[in-house]
Design a protein around this nucleic acid. Structure first.
Lengths: 187, 187
DNA sequence: AAAGACATGGAGTGATTACTCCGTTTACAA
DNA sequence: TTGTAAACGGAGTAATCACTCCATGTCTTT
């Protein structure tokens, strides 16, 4: 297919940004709201994303790919422990202000269409690498399996946003979790 | 006001039960679905709960009160540590099958009307007592504040449900968290 | 610069849904 | 048993929302 016309590409980007914003604040907002914020007609939204679900998936995919890229970057860090805990902290902190990330993490494994599903798998895989390396380096206990650690990542994100934790309390919460994850706490 | 007529009281209970079931599975189901499941006309639903929001609040309040009662019971247990961890485990385990509990916990502090707000406060207070006693007994480290522990409770619930954790993985996740909460892990 | 493909906006459509009206039925008191 | 207030069911209403149609506008190519 031929490349998009300049204005079309522009609008597409604006719509995606607006959707991220709108759905980030209230997940079942109407498509009209997205159009309004993007300063675009409704028809334009539907031309670029034929269905509301596809628009949501596009937002989701976008977020997941960004998280995956960040995790992949960090997996090349020399300090595997710092990379793992740094990623974890960053994700949870961002979720506090961006509801959408928390939702994206939840949805990553469950619903969603093909593209989003793949992005979710990629993101989880990249996080798995971070965990592996941190365990090899002795920064995270070896008996911590991926599913439970990933659930903790998701859970901490949602818990922090849902209860409206202050940044300080969020730090203390992560401190508790990290103590549980570190080598040495043999339960 | 006079006592409800027998059939009315009956229907009210059936509607509440149906609502818990329906909204527990898909939080934005229609009121019709609740009526269908309760084997009651729509009008009857709206006569008992004048608004969909009020119906949701009633479900929420119900759940929160049950949790509060359970926490209050456990706070009379001799083993404060077992009481705290037992409650935590039970809440997270139930959330796995009942989405609604996880949602209720999240909503407890944020949105919701007067009755639900109060029920949420009561539940959090009862949980706070459990935490206090466990800390006094030396089963939970003293530098763990209520907000972050409560956020962990909510988070573990949501994380477990959102990622579809197996019961075994859920147990391991809780093991990690509990290790972080116990006395001795001085971070 | 001019043609024609590509995009756009916004009114329109049908489906869904929260909530109401009212004729009928049911529980309770005497 | 019967009168009546209380409760019920379900068709009806208005609003919302996802999505379409088409007349108008705008890039881009030669």
């Amino acid at each position: 297919m031929r490349p998009l016309r300049a204005d079309a590409r522009d609008n597409r980007a604006r719509i995606l940004a607006a959707a991220e914003d709108v759905f980030g604040q209230s997940p079942n907002a109407s498509t009209d709201e997205v159009a309004k914020l993007a300063e675009v007609g409704i028809a334009t939204v539907f031309r670029h994303f034929p269905t509301k679900v596809e628009l949501l998936e596009a937002v989701l995919t976008d977020r997941l790919e960004r998280l995956r890229d960040r995790a992949a970057d960090l997996s090349r860090d020399d300090d595997a422990g710092a990379a793992f805990f740094g990623f974890f902290t960053q994700v949870v902190s961002e979720s506090a202000s961006k509801l959408a990330i928390a939702e994206a993490l939840s949805a990553a494994g469950t619903v969603a269409g093909e593209a989003a599903k793949q992005a979710g798998a990629g993101m989880r895989e990249a996080f798995g690498v971070l965990l592996d390396r941190a365990q090899q380096a002795g920064a995270v206990r070896r008996d911590a399996g991926f599913p439970e650690v990933y659930a903790l990542l998701v859970g901490c994100s949602r818990g922090a946003t849902a209860t409206g934790l202050t940044p300080e309390a969020r730090g203390r919460m992560l401190g508790l979790v990290y103590d549980g994850l570190r080598t040495g706490s043999t339960s």
